[in-house]
């Protein structure tokens, strides 16, 4: 509660939180607020400059792309795709990471050795290369990863895309999750290892509490604050990684809009229409900055609890963020 109150005091972070929430909620009503149809192609209207009327007299606030599709409309739909992808990927991989890290750190022994080795092994792989390879396999072969149709339909409804597009997006998500959970798991394991040794955990065990009770009431709540910070950083990380992947052409594919693939098209028309790449750049810029500010606010809110293990955990999180960045630079 104290942390929450301290976070609210952090003005910038609060505004950023409102901003992201507003963008996401608005994108959920895309069909109501978007001025045009998502894929309405009209070649006569192609390359309309922002804030001007197209050849047929229709008005486009952010202009149109090379196929004459309204960019504002696509931005709104893309927000839905990009943000949902980032949220799902980060949430699922954090949950898996927490579960694995808790079990490995709390019980130790053989389980710990096994999972730690596995995590180490997965993290020696160059993540971004693997993402590129897996993305390239997934876009060439739509059955590379079996996706239950219920899942792709649900994702399709959330993102306002059809089932086939949904399937592709789910595949990209699965790849991100498969490679993303290790960082969280390692970080949670490290914290749980030191929390496990605390006296309150030991006394609770002595009083006859079960391991499950101990994990839920003592270990998890104490490990939670840094996990939340890592979650926020991970959120901006996967937003950026998804747009980078789509930008290079291995992520979400064209009729489905995502900020990354919109930028990749705009990039090829940059010299004739310099305003074009600015349009998708803007939301990527705003969202990644805003999410990072939220993370920063959370970190400040948590800061008074300067205990060694938490500082170390924060440093590990920062280290991981820097490593991820240099991999994707």
């Amino acid at each position: 509660m104290l942390i929450f109150r301290r976070f609210i005091k952090h003005r910038v972070a609060m505004w950023c939180l409102y901003l992201i929430a507003a963008i996401y909620v608005l994108s959920m009503f895309a069909s109501l607020i978007a001025p045009y149809k998502r894929d309405a192609i009209s070649l006569d209207n192609a390359y309309t400059t922002p804030f001007s009327a197209a050849k047929d007299g229709s008005y486009h606030v952010f202009g149109t792309d090379h196929l004459g599709r309204d960019l504002l409309t696509r931005l709104i739909y893309a927000a839905r795709v990009s943000l949902t992808t980032a949220l799902t990927v980060t949430t699922v991989s954090t949950l898996i990471g927490i579960a694995v890290g808790l079990v490995a750190g709390y019980f130790g022994g053989f389980i710990d050795t096994f999972t730690s080795r596995m995590i180490e092994f997965i993290s020696t792989f160059p993540t971004f290369t693997l993402l590129l390879i897996a993305g390239s396999i997934a876009i060439q072969n739509s059955d590379a990863i079996p996706i239950p149709s219920l899942l792709s339909k649900t994702i399709g409804v959330i993102m306002a895309i059809n089932e086939r597009e949904g399937k592709q997006v789910v595949m990209i998500m699965v790849i991100f999750i498969a490679l993303g959970w290790t960082g969280v798991a390692r970080f949670v394991r490290g914290m749980v290892l030191s929390i496990r040794e605390q006296l309150y955990v030991e006394s609770s065990l002595a009083l006859g509490a079960s391991h499950l009770h101990n994990i839920i009431t003592h270990v998890l709540p104490n490990a939670m604050p840094p996990i939340i910070v890592a979650y926020t950083l991970g959120l901006s990380g996967s937003l950026v990684a998804e747009s980078a992947l789509s930008f290079l052409g291995f992520g979400i594919q064209d009729p489905t809009p995502s900020w990354g693939n919109m930028l990749s098209f705009a990039n090829s028309y940059m010299f004739n229409y310099p305003w074009m790449p600015l349009i998708p750049t803007l939301p990527i810029l705003v969202c990644s900055l805003a999410i990072n500010y939220i993370g920063d606010g959370l970190r400040d809110a948590l800061d008074p609890r300067v205990q060694t293990e938490i500082t170390r955990a924060k440093r590990d999180a920062l280290l991981k963020a820097i490593h991820d960045r240099s991999a994707a630079s």
Partner: peptide, 23 residues
């Protein structure tokens, strides 16, 4: 450095091209 480490490289790169090459 906060801005630098939260912005994706391709965004910085494209802005640079727009400013220093095209602009």
């Amino acid at each position: 450095s906060f801005v630098g480490s939260s912005l994706p490289t391709f965004v910085i790169g494209i802005i640079c091209i727009l400013v220093f090459a095209v602009g």
